[in-house]
Design a protein around this nucleic acid. Structure first.
Lengths: 122, 122
DNA sequence: AAGACTATATGTATAAAGAATATAGTACTG
DNA sequence: CAGTACTATATTCTTTATACATATAGTCTT
């Protein structure tokens, strides 16, 4: 009998709101990048190559462009299919700085919860 | 000139997926509780009394009941308006245990990102 | 009697993300 | 050179979590 998911929290998507977006801003912080190529770099942030959703990745990049956080252009000559290459903007860097603050708060809220859990269960 | 939100990440909802649900499971872990009364207890997890959304709170509790994580009943005699009192189930406790593991992963992913940010910006 | 507070609930809207699918060019391989 | 695998981007549809607004009603205080 296969895993029949007793726990609702096993029901797949354990994403953290906008986390992908922040990772992308950080990866683009000091060098340009393109969608497909960013996949392997995202692995260090816990995005499995299997699990990462391409549609989400591309859509997020285009959304960030609409918001003025990055700019893009088609890569000039180069082998293989053309790549849309993204570059971070000043606004994008500011946005990242703000997000870091928010992530520190998120982290501490998680810590508080884990600590209270440990207190109750030991 | 008012704050005109230069940063998209200031655009309000900095929720973490399902975090409220996990907090509720923990609060109900060793004692029963009801919606309105849980508000002040949620403050310790970073939910401001102003910011916390009652519709989300009540809806989340009912959803948890549908999923079998909690049970509820109207409180017998007692002053004030009637309260729907929630009690955690065995499934609910198992679910919380699972969530704690997920939150530890989330926390470490955030740490990785913050560390990489610090490396790049110092 | 008026107003503040306690308490729960629902209808509608929005935003983030997943699943599935479409489209093509390039590289390798026999 | 035909077939296959890989690189690369994009769109449509759907689901999920949450916010916003509003409704309802009992209780307490003055």
């Amino acid at each position: 009998m296969k895993d029949n998911r007793t726990f609702f929290c096993n029901g797949k998507p354990h994403h953290m709101e906008r986390f992908l977006e922040v990772c992308l801003l950080l990866l683009l912080y000091d060098e340009i990048g393109y969608g497909y190529g960013l996949i392997e770099q995202l692995a260090s942030f816990g995005f499995s190559e299997a699990g990462l959703n391409m549609s989400t990745l591309y859509r997020t990049l285009r959304k960030m462009e609409n918001e003025g956080l990055v700019t893009s252009q088609w890569e000039e000559g180069g082998q293989g299919p053309k790549r849309r290459v993204y570059e971070i903007t000043k606004d994008g860097k500011n946005e990242l700085d703000q997000w870091i603050g928010i992530l520190k708060i998120r982290k501490s809220r998680i810590e508080v919860l884990i600590n209270q859990y440990d207190e109750k269960t030991t």
